[in-house]
């Protein structure tokens, strides 16, 4: 690696420095746009006690769900979980903690975290369990709760294409939480389907500028579909 070249050639290198009890922010919505290779590497490394920030926690045997198999996750910060039996089992047995966070608040926590904003007020969750114990303030006659932003030791991100400088483009709805996650990691690792040379991507079409990206790796992806729904041709 030299200059702005962010490319690494192995997942060992991509995830080097990840340790027990760290916080990992992951992009993805359901199984769409998830950093499959980074997740697999975290499983191989066997680090434990992780706090994982992700909208969902995969399914049994795929996505972040594989990190539950060896009890690597201590806490999930998510908006919707429990599509996997193992997740519910560990939750009910007290081996796993979950902090349910409204989806928009979760996205904004990552965005704010990456933008150096420590907290923000939102109407979402006021008057509900989510708002309990949080500061309330009235603006223009409406009540808002104070939500703290999130940053991670690592952010793991799935892009479509990137140039060697780490300028990333996402594909379709595989974008989801990935751009916010990319901004909120002390070390941001992006895996993509294709790495191109600087200059090959239109600068005005970049979703995640390379300044946020520390390590870039080209991966191969299964892209499993959670709910395959089709109509007659």
């Amino acid at each position: 690696m030299s200059g702005f070249d962010k490319v690494v050639n192995s997942y060992e290198e991509a995830m080097a420095g990840l340790d027990n009890d760290m916080t990992v922010i992951a992009g993805g919505f359901g199984l769409c746009g998830i950093p499959e290779g980074c997740i697999a590497q975290i499983k191989r490394m066997g680090v434990k006690g992780l706090t994982v920030v992700s909208n969902n926690c995969g399914v049994d045997g795929f996505g972040l769900g594989v990190l539950l198999e060896d009890k690597q996750v201590k806490k999930m910060i998510s908006s919707y979980v429990g599509e996997n039996a193992l997740f519910m089992k560990q939750l009910l047995e007290g081996e796993l903690e979950v902090e349910l966070t409204p989806q928009g608040t979760l996205a904004e926590k990552m965005r704010a975290g990456g933008a150096g904003i420590p907290a923000f007020y939102t109407a979402t969750g006021y008057g509900t369990l989510v708002g309990e114990g949080k500061d309330v303030r009235e603006f223009n006659g409406r009540n808002y709760i104070l939500e703290e932003s999130i940053t991670g030791d690592f952010a793991i991100v799935k892009g479509w294409k990137a140039d060697r400088y780490g300028n990333v483009i996402y594909r379709h709805t595989a974008q989801n939480f990935n751009p916010m996650a990319a901004t909120a990691g002390k070390i941001t690792v992006v895996e993509v389907e294709e790495i191109v040379e600087p200059g090959e991507l239109d600068p005005s079409q970049i979703h995640t500028p390379g300044i946020y990206v520390d390590r870039l790796i080209q991966g191969t992806f299964e892209k499993r579909i959670e709910q395959r729904t089709v109509r007659e041709a």
Partner: peptide, 8 residues
Amino acid sequence: KGMGGAMD
């Protein structure tokens, strides 16, 4: 299972 985007 969680609120997803409903609270927002």
